[in-house]
């Protein structure tokens, strides 16, 4: 079982999702973001950077996080990002339509491109990963895009080419909305995604 550490920001949303909810048991370690610069990653297999992480403190630790991936670590990021710091991710901001599901014949605009991947074979369905998006990534060649928009922008991808380790990046923000007591899909996403991170085929 992989040991997951999360960079903990102390907001009410992080408090619920990472500390007190049914999902807390998946986290081996909460690293307070103020202690990130001194934290050791030796004992962990996965480092998760949540949505709405403090941008100033994140900036100060970008090199450290990249070094962790370059040494073979797995880094997971939830979106949206406040500045460009993921390897070659080529972020494209798009105006968020929070209300797509109210429209007639509502279509989220999402396409499952990773239907054969372990994550979508055994842990998640596309509807579990379907709510609004804040933008898309255009990841480097050789990355595996699991969820995309109809025009091919990546909403969820795995990048094993930019480092010796693995970057799992999504524009989705399940932790923020679950932590705000919003949107049941985000709960289903975390129920599948976190067990996969612990024991699935990455």
């Amino acid at each position: 079982m992989r040991k997951i550490a999360v960079v903990y920001g102390g907001s009410s949303q992080h408090h619920r999702t990472y500390k007190t909810s049914e999902f807390a048991k998946h986290f081996h370690q909460l690293i307070p973001i103020r202690e990130l610069a001194e934290a050791s990653f030796e004992d962990i297999d996965v480092l998760l950077i949540p949505s709405q992480t403090h941008l100033g403190l994140l900036k100060e630790n970008v090199e450290k996080i990249h070094a962790y991936a370059d040494n073979g670590g797995i880094v997971v990021t939830f979106g949206p990002q406040g500045f460009d710091w993921l390897p070659k991710h080529d972020w494209e901001f798009r105006i968020t339509n929070f209300w797509w599901w109210l429209e007639k014949d509502a279509k989220s605009g999402l396409v499952l491109t990773g239907e054969n991947h372990d994550l979508f074979q055994n842990y998640l369905t596309l509807s579990d990963a379907t709510w609004h998006q804040h933008g898309v990534y255009w990841p480097p060649e050789g990355s595996e895009v699991l969820v995309a928009t109809e025009d091919g922008g990546a909403v969820f991808y795995i990048d094993k080419v930019s480092s010796k380790g693995t970057w799992i990046n999504t524009t989705l923000d399940p932790d923020f909305h679950y932590g705000s007591y919003f949107m049941p899909a985000t709960e289903r996403f975390l129920r599948g995604f976190l067990p996969w991170l612990e024991e699935g085929k990455i």
């Binding site: 920001g9 907001s11 103020r34 949505s51 709405q52 992480t53 403090h54 941008l55 100033g56 403190l57 949206p80 990002q81 406040g82």
Partner: peptide, 25 residues
């Protein structure tokens, strides 16, 4: 200012007359 993306966006869009914004830390 909580420091995350939403807080930044809010700062850019808000009428801040009479308000001083400081980082939480």
């Amino acid at each position: 200012n909580a420091g995350g993306v939403f807080a930044q966006t809010r700062l850019e869009n808000q009428d801040s007359t009479g308000f001083t914004h400081v980082d939480i830390y």
